[in-house]
Amino acid sequence: MARPLRQSLIAFMTVAGLWAAPAWAAGMRDAVSSVDIFRSIGIAASVAGILLLILVQYVYRKRLSHSTYHRLLLVGVFLLPLTATWSTTATVMEGTKSVQACRSCHVMHPFVNDMTNPSSPTLAARHYRNNWIAKDQCYACHVTYGATGTLAGKRDGFRHWFHYVTNTYPDPIQYVGSYANSNCLSCHQGTGKWERVKSHQTLVGELSADRIACVTCHGPPHPLPHERTVAMANRDASRRMAGGPDGQ
């Protein structure tokens, strides 16, 4: 291998390594999320790509053979940008799983506020405060399991985003379609508590076909439409601040 090529590769590896290695190592300890890792790889690839192109074009051009020059251009113009594109997509796909991502639309504030309210009795709040779902609490219950589920989840997210930016959504928002019970069943089905209820057994078919929703008996999962108004939010806040029993 030609010396300049080797040098370029070393430079690239160093830069990429500087970004990726600590992130990766940290990721192992769960302190850094996968989003951070994807983002680091993307940034590293971008920086490496630009650096490589500058070096190839302005520093090493005359010293490189024609074929090496072309190969390096291929790496700088296609492979590294492709890596950066992949990492951007992965970052978005992964990053939109977070509660913060959902909360970035104002429409979601009553839902997230309720979920993080330590005295809310909704299903979402109970799952949150009892740590039944450790992270990405919105995503965990709103994406159906399996590859098509992820796809449907992302499609929903895109549609929500589209309606949000074009301001074409109803307020208060309503859940569309039948909620996929598999989100609940994947954790609850088969547990002692679940099995103890006789009607769960006779309803297995109806539940897996989503013809009966778990949340009908065990919900509501979030504040109801009429509970999501500004007035309601203010009233709840003032109640919490007063700290006393709920007045009439």
Binding site: D156, T166, V176
Partner: peptide, 16 residues
């Protein structure tokens, strides 16, 4: 499609 009234193509459907 969402603008053309074909929103259902994008949406989850009801089981019943």
């Amino acid at each position: 499609t969402p603008l053309a009234g074909c929103g259902s193509f994008w949406e989850r459907q009801t089981a019943i």
